[in-house]
Amino acid sequence: MIDEPSPDFAAQLIKADSWNDDLRTRYEQQKLALVERRLTRVQQWVGWLSLPVYPALVVGVLYRRLTTGERDSREWLILEMVSAIVLLALGGWILWVLLRQGRVTWRDDRAMEWIGGIGLAALTFSLYELARSLPDAKAALGLHEAATIILVLGASAIVFERVRRSRLETRVELLELELRYAELARQIRSSVDRI
């Protein structure tokens, strides 16, 4: 018999316990809630219902290009192509999330930030270019204002999302650091006790 239980004893004690693998798997899956979010059932339904809209819009844009597009300027062509690519990217992202039962990981969120950022920049740039090319000054001004509103709203949404994610990531990293610090302190203390 020894006077004090050692950390090795704790390890042996834990080793002596047995666990149900199914329960462990379920726990690991649920723990992911810390680093990912899940779309609500309503959001998933809205996502599925809106999904055909994206390819339909892309088909519409391409159809317009094939039928009346030849009379349009180069600026129209750029806007239509940018719109089609952005719509496909958004639709693809939504499909990807829905196929995984609405799970949105950090990586998915980051991908959406890139899609949103690049898409917004390309869309507003092509709108500004189109506004510049319009012969009607009043229509050009209206389009210019619309592009500015889209840019401001889109950028605000991206910044808001970035701040939300940064807070979340910082809290999880802080938790990990605190736990490691406490573990380290425990190990040092037990080493000192042994000496």
Partner: peptide, 8 residues
Amino acid sequence: SPALEDAE
């Protein structure tokens, strides 16, 4: 305190 081998 128990010995290490008594853990189980």
